[in-house]
């Protein structure tokens, strides 16, 4: 398997290459080799832990966008059964940057929607790098409305750099599409759990993010604008992204302390892309636990719980 290393992961690269080569080609019964393998294993684990114990916000941003990171459809496959994907906004087109459908979660019927990124060049283009057009939000809304009507909990997975800044997207009203989702999601009388699995970029992320619970993976980010965009506007220099990432307080830890999210979902050491199964199992356990808590809420309580959750957000003083 070809691994993609981020800059700050470079100390791992040589160690892991040697380890893999020895594993594959060295004679099994050579004690020198097995001693080396054992040493490498320990060393790799230690270096990895050291790197990941002190990630700065910009490094987390890079991890949240890692090309090997599990995307919505990966999680859907590993978490749900009987997933049936639904397509189209019934108005203009099917937007591949947003996916969704019906599925079962431990036997219970649910509705799931999420942004979808691509992994290779061709799929990245097809998925428009996970940046929906207005049709994507409208498709998500249509699928979530099924949940509201047929009383199925709604699970959303957020992973987008943001809405697509294009002519067609503006002409067809992406602002209206996002706004409508925000308003309509506030009215669905079923539990909604939103999970930020990668990049939570601005309005495009929030458009499927109005949940009773908002969970966030350890290396995910969630921000009002991309660090690049923020740097270009406030520093007048797009290369100051790492400063912007720092200043905007966009990591899971920051958002938990700001009261915006409910829980940080831990990732396997090195990031979710290092172990899909384990990452998905942890995400699933968190979703199930929160749905369990919401199960006994009346429709009225579900609605007021969600309303109050967002109503409380903000920092101001009354003098």
């Amino acid at each position: 398997m070809v691994r993609h290393y981020l800059d700050f992961e470079k100390p791992l690269m040589d160690l892991e290459r040697e380890y893999e080569e020895l594993q594959r080609f060295a004679p099994r019964n050579d004690t020198k080799v097995s001693a080396r393998i054992e040493w490498l294993e320990k060393r790799i684990a230690k270096v990895r832990e050291e790197i990941h114990a002190q990630l700065n916000p910009w490094q987390r941003t890079q991890l949240s966008r890692h090309i090997d990171r599990p995307h919505t459809l990966d999680y859907i496959q590993l978490i749900f059964d009987d997933f049936i994907e639904l397509h189209g906004d019934r108005g203009f087109m099917d937007d591949p940057a947003m996916v969704g459908g019906l599925a079962r979660l431990d036997g219970e019927a649910v509705v799931v929607v999420g942004h979808q990124k691509g992994r290779d060049v061709k799929e990245m283009g097809y998925r428009n790098f996970g940046m929906p057009h207005p049709e994507g939000y409208r498709k998500a809304l249509r699928i979530m409305e099924l949940g509201a009507r047929f009383k199925k909990p709604i699970i959303t997975m957020i992973d987008t750099p943001g809405a697509y800044p294009g002519v067609g997207a503006e002409e067809r009203g992406q602002a209206e599409a996002i706004a409508r989702n925000l308003m309509e999601m506030a009215t669905f009388p079923v539990p909604i759990v939103a999970v930020v699995i990668g990049e939570g970029g601005s309005g495009g992320a929030l458009a499927i993010g109005v949940g009773n619970r908002i969970l966030m993976l350890e290396n995910a980010i969630y921000s009002v604008i991309t660090p690049e965009g923020c740097a270009a506007i406030l520093w007048r220099d797009g290369t100051k992204s790492s400063l912007a990432a720092e200043a905007m307080k966009m990591t899971a830890t920051d958002l938990l302390s700001l009261g915006v999210i409910d829980e940080i979902i831990p990732e396997p050491v090195g990031g979710a892309h290092r172990n899909y199964q384990r990452a998905a199992a942890t995400v699933k356990a968190a979703i199930v636990r929160h749905l369990e808590e919401l199960r006994d809420f009346s429709e009225e309580t579900i609605l007021s719980d969600r309303y109050q959750r967002f109503r409380r957000m903000g920092a101001f003083r009354e003098e």
Binding site: A186, G203, L206, V210, D254, L255, F310, M313, A315
Partner: peptide, 13 residues
């Protein structure tokens, strides 16, 4: 930061 983004959800709700 993120609190500004959340005002969109709050006002729409």
């Amino acid at each position: 930061g993120i609190l500004s983004l959340m005002q969109m959800a709050k006002t729409s709700a």
